[in-house]
Design a protein around this nucleic acid. Structure first.
Lengths: 185, 185
DNA sequence: TGACGACGGAACGGACCCGTTTCGTCGCTA
DNA sequence: TAGCGACGAAACGGGTCCGTTCCGTCGTCA
């Protein structure tokens, strides 16, 4: 009989707190405070900070990711970059994702959850894109999907999350062209 | 008249503590404990956790990074990847660097220090590599050094730090080939 | 040999958080 | 309308860390 609106307020607060202070500094008291809720309401639902975050991640994983099907390798790559750039430009996501990736190195549960929520679906999409490009004859039959993902997402992630420099006009088109050239090499 | 051996022990402890628990969880008490030193010795030298880390970063920045000069674009790119992979495979560095990058979003001072310690020197090296490749006619005259760095380092960083999957045999060679193809596109 | 100063250790009051318990309130549902 | 249960608030003892202060020790230099 837990009230759903309270549950949702807590979930939202976790997300905001994660972005604001990061997993390491995040506290149950802080979450309850931000959610306008008693600590009891939080502990009634989750047993620790970690399970709270894992719950959020698995909910996110359930969404899945649609594979693009534009009919050309360039089009598919460009679409992938668009989706990724949109996600990584989100101020909250661009803060939360790297933070959790760092914590993943210390908490295997987080590593597993992130793998399930983000990496697996991305790798799945990359596999589909590569397979279709091979079927069209755009890539050799021994093309590797993991390598493809590295070449497509890597530069964008580096630029948006690590360097954090604004992208020039047309940069995604440029990256897509470069990635296709790299894939065919 | 501060004892240099104590100073050095503290610096080493900061590095280890940073790798073990991250900047957010790191405490002066923990550093002193790990260094086998009184808190007083730390506060006598630095005024806060932040200045401690900034000091470490600027010391690191002073080292600089030599630009490769192998005589070919592929050779230079391959050499860059080798150096970066060596650094990012280091268990301590691969923990500390992403952690500080995340904190950089919350502390402008850290962002500046990282830019000076890592990004600027890398961008400088990339600029040299691109300029020489242009001089050799391997790249068009309008080749962009920032884009080059994204294409070279991005996939490697993504793979080593985000996905954290072991690299297959010959993967650096492969990445170098792919990066060169991307650069020429 | 005496004075100086950095040292490690211990303690300070204050802050924050942990996870738990108790309380009175409020909104369901029977 | 009576009862049940989730709610927010507050307090609990216990923990860690903050930045500071005091102390007794030890090495150095005059």
């Amino acid at each position: 009989m837990l009230r759903e609106d309270v549950t949702e307020a807590i979930r939202a607060a976790v997300f905001e707190e994660l972005a604001a202070v990061g997993f390491a500094r995040m506290s149950i008291e802080g979450i309850a405070r931000r959610a306008g809720v008693g600590k009891t309401a939080v502990y009634r639902r989750w047993k620790s900070k970690l399970s709270l975050v894992l719950d959020l991640l698995t909910a996110f994983a359930a969404q899945g990711l649609p594979a693009p099907a534009t009919g050309s390798l360039y089009g598919d790559v460009r679409a992938l970059l668009e989706v990724a750039a949109h996600a990584l430009r989100h101020p909250v996501a661009s803060q939360v994702i790297p933070d959790l990736l760092v914590e993943a190195a210390r908490h295997p549960e987080i590593a597993d959850a992130i793998k399930a929520a983000l990496l697996d679906s991305q790798q799945g999409v990359a596999a589909v894109v590569v397979r279709e490009a091979v079927a069209r004859g755009e890539l050799p039959v021994d093309a590797d999907a993991d390598r493809a993902l590295d070449l497509i997402i890597g530069p964008l992630y580096w630029r948006l999350v690590v360097v954090r420099t604004p992208l020039p006009q047309g940069y995604l088109d440029d990256l897509a062209t470069a990635a296709v050239a790299a894939l065919k090499s």
